[in-house]
């Protein structure tokens, strides 16, 4: 995916709503966040990527006002803050990783309840239409599916028409159609000049939505930039992907030393010279009688960048 979803020109460039410098947080001997710095601009989507345990959640929770940092500077809406309190939260929208609502409240009651926490709020009906839950307004939360709860959580995050939105894995559990719908909403929010702080497990989501990506590992940002720049930095390799019986992999890796990576029966090969390498692969397969199932040729993406930087897949 090379284009933003949808492609729009930002008109709020340069107005920083959130700036973080040297943020640190430890739990005993474990440094969960170890000197993280970044900024989020108005009208931009900032994506923080990282495997589980990288410090992503702790970073987000500090910025949502749910945890206190050990040290570091946070500048929010142009003011330096030591802790994020009600004054800042009024201007923020938060979608937590786990959509936890009182199961015995109805959907519209949840929205009315959360509306009461803010000085002004958007009408619940409008939000339910926006997230496609109008027909569930009177349903109890406990009867909603995981995807519907996620959409309710998004509606709650948008209740106060926030300037800065924290979306922690907003599309997890959604079907492809609903995911695209959420992408549309996020893209629209960006066009409205909202700043979006996004964490996701879906690389294509980060590629499609993010203006800036930071990759976090072991509490540190190990790479950052626009998705295109990060991929470009990765090199001019092309990827071959296919499936072969597991026992044939050692022989294949001898033929292409350091290029092939195995994940079950799935093999990914990074090649510099596609015609020659592909020809060698097909010859090897024909000679050994190995069927290359689901063979595809693709360009590198953020997942490859992530994998090469962290040695792990994003959902590991």
């Amino acid at each position: 995916m090379s284009e933003k979803w949808p492609l729009r020109a930002g008109v709020y460039c340069g107005v920083v709503l959130l700036r973080v410098r040297d943020l640190r947080k430890s739990y005993g001997p474990v440094r969960a966040v170890d000197g993280v710095s970044f900024s989020v601009e108005k009208g931009k989507v900032f994506a923080l990527l990282g495997p589980n345990g990288a410090g992503k959640t702790t970073t987000v929770e500090i910025l949502e006002g749910l945890r206190l940092p050990d040290s570091g500077e946070i500048e929010l809406f142009g003011e330096r803050v030591t802790r994020i309190g009600p004054r800042e939260k009024v201007r923020m929208g938060v979608l937590l990783q786990e959509a936890a609502f009182e199961p015995y409240l109805r959907v519209q009651e949840v929205l009315r309840l959360f509306s009461s926490f803010f000085p002004k709020a958007r009408p619940p009906g409008e939000l339910l239409t926006l997230v496609g839950l109008s027909d569930k307004a009177r349903a109890l939360v406990k009867t909603l599916s995981g995807g519907q709860k996620r959409r309710l959580a998004l509606a709650v995050a948008l209740l106060n028409d926030p300037e800065l939105l924290f979306l922690d894995e907003p599309t997890t559990g959604l079907d492809p159609q609903a995911r695209r719908h959420v992408w549309d909403i996020i893209a629209e929010l960006r066009c409205q000049g909202k700043a979006v702080f996004l964490t996701t497990h879906y690389m294509e989501e980060a590629e499609a939505l993010a203006d800036w990506v930071a990759i976090l590992d072991h509490g540190r940002i190990i790479a950052e930039g626009t998705p295109q720049n990060l991929i470009r930095r990765f090199g001019a390799e092309t990827f071959l992907e296919f499936e072969i019986p597991k026992e044939t992999f050692p022989e294949l890796s001898q033929l292409f030393p350091g290029k092939a990576r195995q994940d079950g029966e799935r093999v990914t090969m990074a090649v510099q010279d596609l015609p020659n390498d592909l020809s060698s692969l097909l010859s090897w397969a024909a000679g050994k009688g190995v069927v290359l199932r689901n063979l595809l040729v693709r360009q590198p993406n953020l997942e490859d960048v992530f994998l090469s930087l962290t040695g792990r897949r994003l959902r590991d």
Partner: peptide
């Protein structure tokens, strides 16, 4: 435990 409080306290609610 069910993280309902976290959701509340991510708003200005004290």
């Amino acid at each position: 435990e069910t993280k309902i409080l976290r959701r509340y306290f991510a708003t200005p609610l004290s």
